[in-house]
Amino acid sequence: MLIIVLIGGILMIAQYFLNIPFLNSLYKKILDWSIVISIFALVIAIRSLLARQFKAIRERTEHIVLPLTTIVSFSAVVIIGLIWGVGEGGFVDTVYKKFLVPMQAAIFSLLAFYIASASYRAFRAKNFSSIVLLAAASIVIIGRIPLGDALADMTTVTLKSGPFALIDFPRWAEWILNVPNVGIKRAFAFGITIGIVFTSLKVIFGIERGYLK
C-alpha cells in the first residue's frame, strides 16, 4: 500500500518539474480520477447521513419529525432532480435559488452577531501583545467608516508641504494593512508552505503512516 503512495507522490512531483507529456497528461487524468473516486465515496457518505437519521427514528433519541425532515427533503430533491434534471428554471434550480442561496446567506450573516459578541469578550488589554492587537483592530475599525474621514477632516492643519491631518485613521489603517500585515502574511505563507511540503514528503516516504499499514 505504501508503494502506491510512494509512486503516486513521486510521479506527481515529477510532472510539475519535468516537461514530460505523458506525466502532464497523467496529472490531468488523475485530477479527473479523484472526482470519479469521490462519487463512490459520496455514496458511502450519504449512506452514513441517512443511517444516522434512521437510527434516530428507531431509537427515539429525538423528535421523529427532525430525522424525517432530512430524509424526505433529501429524497425529494434527489428523485425530482434525477427525473426532471437540474437545469435552468426547473424545480431543483428554484430550490437552489429561492431556498439554498438565501438560507446560506442567512447563516453566513449570523457572523455579524458573532463578531460583535467576540469583540466584547476577547479584546482584553491583558498584556502588551493584546494591547497591540486591540489598538490595531480599533484603528482599522475606525479607519474604515465615515467617522474616520470626519476626524481627519476636523484635525487637518496646513503645513508648508500642504494639508496634513493629525488624526488620520484611514491613513493609519491603510499603512497597517499595507506594511506589517503584508509582512506577516508573507511569513505565514513561507512557514505554512514549508509545513505542507514536509507533511507531503512524510506521507510520500512513509514516515507518517497512520492507518496505511
Binding site: A116, S117, Y120, F123, R124, A125, S138
Partner: peptide, 10 residues
C-alpha cells in the same frame, strides 16, 4: 457598537 463593546469588555 463594536468599539463600545470592546470598551465595555475592558
Amino acid at each position: 457598537l463594536v468599539l463600545l463593546l470592546v470598551l465595555a469588555g475592558n
